[in-house]
Amino acid sequence: MDALKSAGRALIRSPSLAKQSWGGGGRHRKLPENWTDTRETLLEGMLFSLKYLGMTLVEQPKGEELSAAAIKRIVATAKASGKKLQKVTLKVSPRGIILTDNLTNQLIENVSIYRISYCTADKMHDKVFAYIAQSQHNQSLECHAFLCTKRKMAQAVTLTVAQAFKVAFEFWQVSKEEKEKRDKASQEGGDVLGARQDCTPPLKSLVATGNLLDLEETAKAPLSTVSANTTNMDEVPRPQALSGSSVVWELDDGLDEAFSRLAQSRTNPQVLDTGLTAQDMHYAQCLSPVDWDKPDSSGTEQDDLFSF
C-alpha cells in the first residue's frame, strides 16, 4: 500500500511530472533526481522514447528462454528487412502500455495491464526491452520488442512496467475491499429498513384510530445511509488515497477476473515476472533518469539497429 499512497501523494503535489519523457535525446524537461521519484509518476504514465523492432507469436506467457528466442527472431526479421526502425513513445501506467508513433502521434497499440504476463531486458541484446501480452483480438500470446538507447534504459522500462503492474494490483485490492464494505453496509441498511417496515402498523389501523404518522421519526431512520450505499452501487469504487486528485481509476471486468485468478494461483500475485536478476534490479533502481541518457562506457552510441 505504500507504493499506492506515495504515488497518489506525488501526483497530487505535481501532476505535471508524469508528462516528462525519457530517452528522447535531450528533449525532456528537468528530471527527478532518483528512481523513487520517477516511480511516483506512474499514475498518469511515464513516457519512454524507443524504437519498435516488431512482434512475434509465442506459445507460453512467460520465460527467459522463451523471450530470448522470440527477441532473436524479431531482431533477425528487422535486420533482414533493412528498413529504419519506427520511433515510438511507450506510455507506461497502472492501466497498461500505450504505444504511439512519434511522427504521426497515431495510436499503435493499447495493452491493458492485466494482459501483460512478462517483461524483460534481454541478456543477449542488452539494449532490447520486450514484453509478452495476450492479444486483445484473440487468445494468442505476442512478444513485442523495442530497441532502447542503452542497457540502462531497457532495464528502466522493464522495472517501470513491473512497478505499474504492482500498483494496478494494489488498486484492485483496495477497490475489492471498498466494494465488500459497501455491499455489507448496503445489506445491513436493508435489514434495518426491513425491520422498521415489519414493526410499522398498517396504514388502515392508523387511520381508524385517528393517529398521525410521525414524519420526524421517519426522517431519523437510516434511510439516507441505505440510499447512499445503493444509489451508486454500479459505480466502481476508487482508492481513497486518490481522493481529490485528477486521476480516475476504473476497474473493468477483465482486470477484476484476471487479478482474482492471480490472487488464487500465485504466492506473490502482485509481482510481474521479469528477466532481471536481483543485481540488475538493484543497479537500475539506483540510477537517476539522467543516467539513462548518458552514453555507455563501451563506446559511442549508434542510432541504428545494427549497432548491437
Rank of each mutant, 00 (worst) to 15 (best):
I108V: 04
S21C: 03
E217A: 06
R182Y: 12
S16H: 00
A164T: 10
R39S: 04
I71D: 07
I74D: 09
N268W: 04
R13Q: 10
V192W: 01
T104Y: 03
H144W: 12
R196F: 03
E188L: 10
L85I: 03
S175P: 03
E170F: 02
R266W: 02
L147G: 10
I71L: 13
N102R: 14
I116K: 12
P32A: 10
E188C: 07
A284V: 14
Q20N: 11
T56V: 11
P295H: 08
K91S: 06
L242I: 00
T38E: 12
D37S: 13
T89H: 02
I116V: 09
A133F: 02
I132N: 15
H144F: 15
E216D: 12
P61M: 03
T56W: 13
K220P: 08
L276M: 13
S288V: 03
S243H: 04
E44N: 14
T56C: 09
T38L: 05
I97S: 15
K127S: 04
S112Q: 06
A69V: 05
L276D: 06
T100P: 15
T100S: 13
F165C: 01
D296S: 08
L50T: 04
V58N: 15
Y131Q: 06
L272D: 05
V167Q: 02
E65C: 14
A284F: 00
K30A: 14
S205D: 07
G63R: 12
A185R: 12
H144R: 13
G23N: 03
S140I: 15
D280E: 04
S227I: 11
L103N: 02
Q240H: 04
E188N: 06
K72F: 08
T160S: 11
G24L: 06
K179Q: 15
H125Q: 08
L305T: 03
F259E: 02
L206N: 03
T100Q: 08
M281V: 10
Q187K: 07
A7N: 13
Q264W: 07
A130H: 08
D291C: 07
S93N: 11
Q302R: 02
D304G: 08
T300D: 03
Q270H: 08
N232L: 08
A195Q: 01
L147C: 12
Q197T: 10
T160A: 10
Q163G: 00
L212T: 00
N211V: 12
T231E: 03
A185V: 15
T277D: 02
Q134A: 13
K204W: 13
T158M: 15
L141M: 06
W249Y: 03
Q106A: 04
L85E: 11
T41H: 14
Y283S: 03
L90I: 13
Q163K: 05
W292K: 00
F259V: 02
K184I: 10
V58S: 14
K62L: 03
D253N: 15
R115G: 15
T56R: 14
L213C: 09
N211T: 06
R39V: 11
R261I: 05
T104G: 12
A241Y: 03
K179M: 10
H28N: 08
N110A: 00
T209K: 09
R238N: 02
L223H: 02
P15S: 03
E235T: 13
V271S: 10
Q20E: 15
K123V: 07
M124I: 05
C148Q: 00
H28M: 15
E180L: 06
K87M: 11
A168P: 01
S117K: 10
Y118F: 13
L47R: 15
L287T: 03
T231D: 11
V128D: 13
E188D: 14
E180D: 15
A80C: 11
L305Y: 03
E250Y: 04
N268L: 00
E59V: 11
G210E: 05
A241N: 00
Y131F: 09
W292D: 03
M233C: 08
T274Q: 02
C199N: 03
P222A: 09
V207R: 10
G26A: 05
R115D: 05
P32E: 15
Q197I: 05
L305G: 08
D122M: 11
V236N: 02
F146R: 13
F169K: 01
M55Y: 10
D252K: 15
A221P: 04
E33H: 12
T149A: 03
C119M: 00
S81Q: 10
R238I: 08
N268V: 03
C286L: 13
C119E: 04
D303H: 10
W22S: 12
F169R: 01
A195D: 03
A185W: 10
W22I: 10
A10M: 14
S112F: 09
G254L: 00
E40G: 15
Y52M: 02
Q187D: 03
D101I: 01
A121V: 10
L17R: 15
L85C: 10
S16M: 06
D198E: 07
T158Y: 01
R9F: 10
L57V: 01
K166P: 03
T160I: 14
D122E: 15
P32V: 15
K72S: 14
V174A: 00
L262F: 02
S186H: 01
A76V: 09
M46S: 02
S260G: 15
S186D: 03
S117P: 11
T209R: 09
T277Q: 07
L305K: 09
R151N: 02
W292T: 00
P269M: 01
L262S: 01
